[in-house]
Design a protein around this nucleic acid. Structure first.
Length: 678
DNA sequence: GGGGCTAAGCTTTTT
DNA sequence: GCTTAGCCCC
């Protein structure tokens, strides 16, 4: 029998050997949590405590779920890993809705709307409802509120009850939801909320899934929202074989609806819960980790954990104050070039972490100037590119002709000649007869106001649909898409539109890449019958991914926001722009949520394995004016013994005193909100 | 669909 | 003050 505990420390072993009942694993940064999670499920199956198909392990990112699948494959076999459900919360939602969504009025072919189209939909709803009148209210704000409502498990009716005064939001929210339903479309939040509603309304369906999954694990539990928590606890019943892994010190997504309370109160919510703390950090040097820990220990509301770094003492943290933002960036770029030249650290070992996307620019400029290769994480993702969105719209339309957004795009590129006024007539007709726009289109001959020419174009469009609809049924996806590209004149249209442009080649390559993706999907699902809707639901969840490639092949310096860095590690990390106007952000101060900002700082520090550099500019240009910068107050919380001693130089003393008084001030300000000595 | 102009806005965004 | 996004017009 395989020894699944080989090379593990005591707490890791205890977690891996846990069998039935709820288990909370508090996993400090770099403590080997993925290892523990995967080893435990591999062991459960290996020892025949359950079948592989009874394992459900949920993560937040595609990357994390891929990694988990890989590791389980290595520990058992690829076949075993394939039988398990190792996926993200959202793809679990897709699976459930595809299987049983019909019970709540959702066809198997439903579409998933992306963020951009969502804003567009809200905009038109707001316009139609007169909400976007005088004050020109921001659809983004409405989107955020609706999303938070959905994450808190509030449907339009619940929300209205809880917030009777938010009349505009109420109107927009309920009309948004009914439009989505009419288009047989869901948004990302629905992928969680709708399964939950399905479960509450159809206990028999819930029972089916409860029986299917006998062991449930959740990764990054500190980031779960109300809906995810409910889903997890529903699915784990009745045995409650629920393992959750997370680190309350790394909860940085409260503004997206994550409830850190879920992890803080887990052990009191679940009777007989076992709690295990993974208290060895294998990632960072002692100097780095102890410093980071000293900072985060200032948070009042947290699970007490004494975590020690075991990877050796290391060098002190270095600090640099630039003359201005440019000088700061220059110093960092120089340092990296120097490391690459004279030390064992190469470019790819370095990461520059910033608080806001806008702060990346001076670094990009400096790196480019010095010829240092770099990659910006979070640049435009593959699926956001125009040509890809166009193609996806075509595919969505064929999978789900009720999807009006996609139909609108299809009608536009290349232009099918059906005019806006014709569409308006069709739309009215659809509303009057309570049918979809597509249904109305098919009955266009009933509308006398439409001109003969337009009737002809609509007929051609319907024929075009029927032809390819059949092809999608009979031919392979990839082949049909190739036909589609020619038949619609899309390729010709591209060639014309980007005639003298370098970007034409790139766009063609992107289309090629998409075709390869389709072929890959067909290959992967060859046994399970690949379908158009299935493919689309797969890729919808990859929407924010830059495309697999890099990582292993990557050569350059990584430039990204602190938020994006969570879960990653780099030998050398630069935390830059440590300016008190950015971290903690003014908004966080306003909301009294400084602890989360401190956690963000902690996440940044703990990304570093060998060397950590903290920098800030002495002055900056802010809204056109030169201003003196006050360093980030968290710098003051790093014990001097771990620093290279530069912080606290005379010229900085005044400012650092200010920083000390900053915390006093904050304490005063929020005394009433419970942040006092009790 | 792109070019050019005007007007905001200046946190973070796993899916 | 400068960048970016949205919108109008071609």
């Amino acid at each position: 029998m395989i020894d699944f505990t080989k090379g593990l420390n005591d707490s890791q072993r205890n977690a891996v050997l846990h069998n039935e009942g709820p288990l909370l694993v508090l996993a400090g940064a770099g403590s080997g949590k993925t290892r523990v999670l995967t080893m435990r499920i591999a062991r459960l199956v290996h020892e025949k405590r359950c079948k592989p198909e009874e394992i459900l392990a949920v993560t937040f990112t595609n990357k994390a779920s891929r990694e988990m699948k890989e590791r389980v494959s290595q520990l058992s076999s690829e076949k075993t890993a394939d039988l398990m459900t190792l996926c993200t919360f959202h793809s679990l939602g897709v699976k459930i809705l595809r299987e049983d969504g019909e019970k709540i009025g959702l066809k198997k072919t439903f579409s998933i709307i992306d963020e951009h189209d969502k804003i567009g939909t809200l905009k038109s709803i707001m316009r139609a409802n007169g909400v976007r009148g005088l004050k020109n209210e921001d659809p983004e704000e409405f989107a955020t509120k609706i999303s938070l409502a959905k994450n808190a498990s509030l449907d339009p009716d619940n929300y209205k009850e809880a917030n009777p005064d938010e009349r505009k939001i109420n109107r927009v929210y309920s009309s948004y939801n009914s439009i989505l339903l009419k288009n047989q479309t869901v948004d990302f939040d629905d992928l969680l909320l709708l399964p939950l509603q399905l479960f509450t309304r159809h206990p028999d369906v819930l029972a089916k899934y409860q029986k299917r999954y006998s062991f449930v694990s959740i990764d990054e539990f500190q980031d779960t929202n109300t809906v995810q928590m409910k889903l997890a606890s529903f699915l784990a019943l009745p045995q409650n074989n629920l393992m959750v892994v997370g680190d309350d010190d790394q909860g940085i997504y409260s503004w997206r609806g994550a409830e850190i309370e879920n992890i803080l109160s887990f052990s009191s919510k679940f009777r007989k819960c076992t709690t295990i703390i993974l208290d060895k950090n294998y990632r960072s040097t002692h100097q780095i980790f102890a410093a980071a820990h000293a900072v985060v220990a200032n948070n009042r509301v947290r699970k007490l954990k004494e975590i020690t770094a075991v990877a050796g003492d290391g060098d002190p943290i270095m600090h640099y104050k630039g003359d201005d933002e440019e000088d700061e960036a220059m110093w960092v770029a120089e340092k990296i070039a120097e490391h690459n030249e004279h030390t064992s650290f190469s470019y790819k070992d370095h990461a520059i972490l910033v608080r806001t996307n806008a702060m990346m620019r001076p670094y990009e400029e400096e790196l480019r100037r010095k010829g240092v290769p770099y990659r910006v994480s979070g640049a435009m993702s593959f699926y956001e590119r125009k040509e890809i969105k166009d193609m996806i719209a075509y595919l969505r339309f064929f999978a789900n002709p009720d999807d009006e957004l996609s139909m609108a795009r299809v009608l536009k590129v290349p232009n099918k000649g059906i005019t806006p006024s014709t569409l308006e007539l069709l739309d009215e007709f659809a509303a009057f007869r309570r049918m979809s726009l597509w249904e109305a289109m098919k009955r266009h001959s009933e509308l006398e106001k439409i001109s003969d020419g337009q009737h002809g174009l609509i007929n051609a469009f319907i024929e075009f649909f029927n032809k390819f609809d059949k092809l999608f049924e009979t031919n392979t996806l990839a082949l049909t898409v190739r036909d589609l590209l020619n038949d619609t004149g899309y390729l010709a249209h591209m060639a014309k539109a980007y005639k003298d442009d370098d970007s034409l080649k790139m766009r063609m390559e992107n289309i090629d890449e998409l075709l390869h993706g389709i072929e890959y999907y067909e290959h992967k699902f060859r046994k399970k019958k690949p379908t158009l809707a299935g493919y689309l639901q797969e890729v919808a969840l990859l929407s924010s991914e830059t495309k697999e490639e890099d990582e292993s092949k990557q050569r350059g310096v990584t430039l990204m926001t602190l938020h994006k860095s969570k879960g990653l590690e780099f030998p050398v990390v630069f935390l830059v722009g440590l300016d008190k106007d950015y971290i903690p952000s003014p908004r966080a101060i306003e909301e009294g949520n400084i602890d989360e900002e401190r956690r963000l700082f902690y996440v940044g520090m703990t990304r570093a394995q060998k060397r950590l550099f903290l920098t800030y500019p002495g002055t900056k240009v802010f809204r056109g004016k030169q201003k003196t910068v006050t360093p980030c107050p968290f710098l003051r919380e790093i014990p001097e013994e771990f620093l290279d001693g530069k912080i606290g130089q005379k010229q900085d003393d005044e400012k650092l005193e200010y920083v000390d008084s900053f915390f006093k001030e904050m304490k005063e300000k929020f005394k009433l909100s419970g942040d006092d000595e009790n």
